[in-house]
Amino acid sequence: MEQPRLVPIMLDNYKPLRELVFESLREAILLGRLKPGERLMEVQLAEEMGVSRTPVREAIRKLELDGFVIMVPRKGAYVAGITLKDIADVFEVRAALEGMAAGLAAERITDEELDQLERSLVQIRESQSGDNINAVVEGDTAFHDIIYQASRNQQLVQIITHLREQIQRFRMTSLSQPGRSKFALDEHKKIVEAISDRDVELARVLAREHIENAEQSLLNAVRKEEQSND
């Protein structure tokens, strides 16, 4: 059965309502339930989530700041599309940063962090066997976060964090492509082996190749979507 675009908001005592609405809309965009170019109608979205228009309006403004939504004068809010230039720009920066992070991690990682990397590989494999793309993406995110922290370079971590929202959107699309998740896990294993062996140069090269492969997967998906719309 097809999943609904949005589900009614369930109150969480630890988060304000506007944050819950924002997270729900962002997830719907990441998962493709709200598609690029789709107009975001405040009244309709509010009805689907069972809230008033105010938190929806606030969430849309935040989504615009994060690059998920574009505002068109006199027309309203639309889900931002993914252009080939957007992909090239983000992945060019990300490949350099991921390579640097992996190289630094090979020098500085702790035994505890190595164990965390190994555990994240197991989590991703289990999520794949359960065909749970959300869990796969969470595991992939956790894997890279461990490497960032192991780099012991806070400036690098901050730059990566600034790109996080766009990376997450691209990550979801890329890992959803047939076969990509399995190849990504194999690439992760090789990166962990290089880091564990303290091979700085190999870790750097493998991390860059991993990101370049993810970029190619995403480009193929976008081109396929463009062809289907022609």
Rank of each mutant, 00 (worst) to 15 (best):
T83Q: 01
S129C: 03
Q3E: 14
A46W: 06
R208V: 08
R171C: 05
G50W: 04
Q116L: 10
P4G: 09
I146V: 15
Y148P: 01
D86W: 00
M10Y: 11
D197I: 04
A95S: 06
E107Y: 12
I159S: 04
M71S: 12
L175G: 02
E2T: 05
V200F: 04
I147G: 00
L25R: 00
S127I: 03
V93K: 08
L202T: 15
T110M: 03
N13D: 12
F22H: 15
L20K: 12
I70P: 04
L63A: 07
I9S: 10
E118H: 05
D131P: 01
A194L: 01
Q44R: 10
E165L: 10
R18T: 11
Q166V: 11
S52R: 03
S174Y: 04
V200E: 14
A101P: 01
A105G: 05
Q155E: 09
K15Q: 14
T83W: 04
L34S: 04
R171I: 00
R18S: 12
N134W: 08
L97E: 15
I70M: 10
L185N: 01
L114P: 08
T54I: 14
F68Q: 01
E165M: 15
F183E: 12
S129E: 13
A59F: 02
A80K: 04
V122L: 06
I160A: 14
I191K: 02
Q227G: 00
E38H: 03
I29W: 06
E19H: 12
D145Y: 09
V157M: 10
M49I: 00
R152Q: 09
R152D: 09
L97K: 00
R164P: 01
I87D: 14
A106V: 06
R39E: 10
E47L: 12
R33K: 12
L6V: 03
M49C: 01
E126Y: 08
R204D: 02
P4Q: 06
I147S: 06
I124W: 10
L104Y: 10
G67L: 05
R204K: 08
K75Q: 12
R5M: 13
R125G: 11
E215M: 15
F22V: 08
E27A: 12
Y148H: 04
A101I: 03
L97V: 02
V122W: 09
E212S: 00
F68P: 00
T110Y: 06
D89R: 15
D230C: 05
Q128S: 00
E118D: 14
F68C: 06
